[in-house]
Every structure is written in C-alpha cells, then in structure tokens.
C-alpha cells in the first residue's frame, strides 16, 4: 500500500516536471532560433530541413547589419531616448511622489487621483490628439517629439509615494528642518538618498518600457535618422526578406540589453512587475 503510494507520487512528480520542461522549451525555442540564425552563414540560413544549431558559426551577420543599414544610428537613438526617458521619469516621479507622500495642501487628493487616473487610459486611445499637439509645437520628426510621451509615468509617482510613506519618517524631515536645512536641501540630501532602492527598480521598468516602444516612433518620425532600434527592425524586416541573418542579428542586439538586466536582477523585476502591475 505504502509502496504503491510512493510510486504514484513519483509518477506525479515526473509528470509535473515533464510539463514544466516542455513548457520551458516552447518559451525558449524562439530565442534559440533567433540566436542560431544570427550566427549562421547565408547559405545555411534558408537550408531545408531547418538546422536548430549552425554548422559553422560566424559573426558576419552582426557586421552586415551595421554596415548595410544604419543600425548603429538606430541603436544610439534607442539608447538616448530610453536614457532621457528614464532620467525624466525618475526626476518627476521622485518630485511628485515625495510631495504627495509628505505634504498636505489644498487640491492634493484631486491632483493625485487625476495623475493616477491617466495611468488607466491606454496610450493608443489618445495618440492621435497627442500627435496633433506635436504638430502644433513643431515637434513632429524631432527628437523631443520622439521622447515626449515617455517623460512621465503615473505608476512611477504612485510607486515613489508608497515608498516615501513607508520608509521616510516625518521625524527625520523635521529634524533636518530644525537644523536649518531648506526644503530643497532636504530633498537632495535626505530624501533622494533614501529612495535609491525604489529608484533603481523604477529605472529598470522605465528603460525597458521606452526601449520597447513601437507605435509612437512609427507615427512621429519620418526620417530614418530618428528611427529607433525597434522601428528600424520593424521597417527592415520585410524589405530584407532574404537577409534573415542580419535581421536576426539586429533582433539579438535589441534584446540583449533588456535580457542582461533581467537575468542580473530577475528576482526584483519579477516581484516588482507582479506586485505593482507594471507592464514591464
């Protein structure tokens, strides 16, 4: 009876792992395929039957993608755009998050709800009027226009406010005030250092989100000089129909920074995304 039970439990465990492993394989296969294709020489890329692993490994595709298309420019644009967006989101979120968390003033709750409510409205529903506003200020097909929608993040304000409330004691701020520190100095020398941890987490989300942007760069830019990595890939992937190798090399380059950050900080990222509902 007992032996039988153990056998059944073993069977269940094996079945469980079998499902998990098959699942993991399906999750990873497209990335393996992408990496493998990016390392194949041109004659192997379209071979039949498809070879999961390259017979000869070459970095030729990585050279080609930068030589034949302005991918270096796209990459630089993406880095600039995501960095500026991250910086601005950190700045505006800590400013507003600190104020909402520690000060009372007329209209505070109304303003906070207003900011939070905009987080629930998807970008796609107001991108047309936003584009027309960009027309008015002559920001169409400019870098400021490209980065503008990514300068603030409502979740960021909410997230910093939570952290300010939870880990920044009023006594500390009052002590600094009694010592004669002005509000700006308190913000710079007391508040910002205490927010290092949450700011780091927020920076990762902000960078990833802006890095992955597609529809806005697609509508706001018209010259290739402003294309981002994602837009460049999206526009080149169907003109380059035979040049699968370089396209996959480009895809790998676009994934690489995000994947590295994720693998290094996976605990924090998974927890952060799951608990805050941030989309990543």
């Amino acid at each position: 009876m007992k032996a039988n039970n153990t056998k059944r439990i073993n069977g269940w465990i094996i079945f469980r792992y079998l499902i998990l492993i098959i699942g993991a394989f399906v999750m990873i296969l497209p990335f393996v395929w992408m990496l493998s294709t990016s390392l194949k020489p041109p004659d192997e890329v379209l071979s039949w039957p498809p070879q999961l692993l390259p017979k000869t490994i070459t970095i030729g595709n990585y050279v080609t993608v930068f030589a034949t298309a302005p991918f270096a420019r796209f990459f630089l644009n993406s880095v600039l755009m995501a960095s500026l967006s991250t910086f601005s989101i950190l700045l505006t979120s800590s400013m507003a998050g600190y104020i909402f968390g520690k000060f009372s003033f007329p209209g505070r709750d109304f303003l906070f709800i207003l900011f939070l409510a905009t987080a629930m409205v998807p970008f796609e529903t107001y991108m047309v009027p936003l584009y027309l506003s960009m027309v008015n200020v002559h920001w169409v097909n400019t870098f400021p226009g490209l980065v503008a929608p990514y300068l603030v993040m409502s979740y960021g304000i909410f997230f910093i406010r939570q952290n300010v409330k939870a880990s920044l004691p009023d006594e500390l701020l009052d002590a600094a005030r009694i010592d004669g520190a002005g509000e700006f100095r308190i913000f710079r020398q007391v508040v910002l250092p205490m927010l290092k941890g949450p700011s780091g987490a927020l920076a990762i989300f902000a960078f990833m989100q802006t890095w992955a942007a597609f529809i806005w760069p697609l509508i706001i830019t018209s010259s290739r000089k402003l294309w981002t990595m994602e837009l460049g890939l999206g526009m080149f992937q169907y003109r380059f129909t035979v040049d699968l190798g370089p396209i996959n090399a480009g895809s790998m380059i676009s994934i690489f920074p995000v994947l590295m950050v994720f693998l290094l900080m996976r605990r924090h990222i998974i927890k952060g995304i799951a608990l805050t509902g941030m989309k990543g």
């Binding site: 699942g23 993991a24 999750m27 990873i28 497209p30 990335f31 395929w33 992408m34 294709t37 990833m208 890095w211 992955a212 597609f214 994602e230 837009l231 890939l233 999206g234 992937q237 699968l244 396209i247 996959n248 480009g250 895809s251 790998m252 676009s254 994934i255 995000v258 994947l259 994720f262 693998l263 996976r266 990222i269 998974i270 995304i273 990543g280």
Partner: peptide
C-alpha cells in the same frame, strides 16, 4: 525565470522571429 523571458523582451524582435517560425 525562463517563463518570464518572453514577457520582458521587446515585441518587435519577438514578432519577427515568430513570423519566420
């Protein structure tokens, strides 16, 4: 971690590789 990788990767490269699959 493995199951989460598709979530954090940008949509464009992933859509491109699926197109070829």
């Amino acid at each position: 971690t493995l199951y989460f990788i598709p979530v954090i990767t940008p949509m464009v490269p992933v859509a491109v590789v699926w197109k070829w699959i």
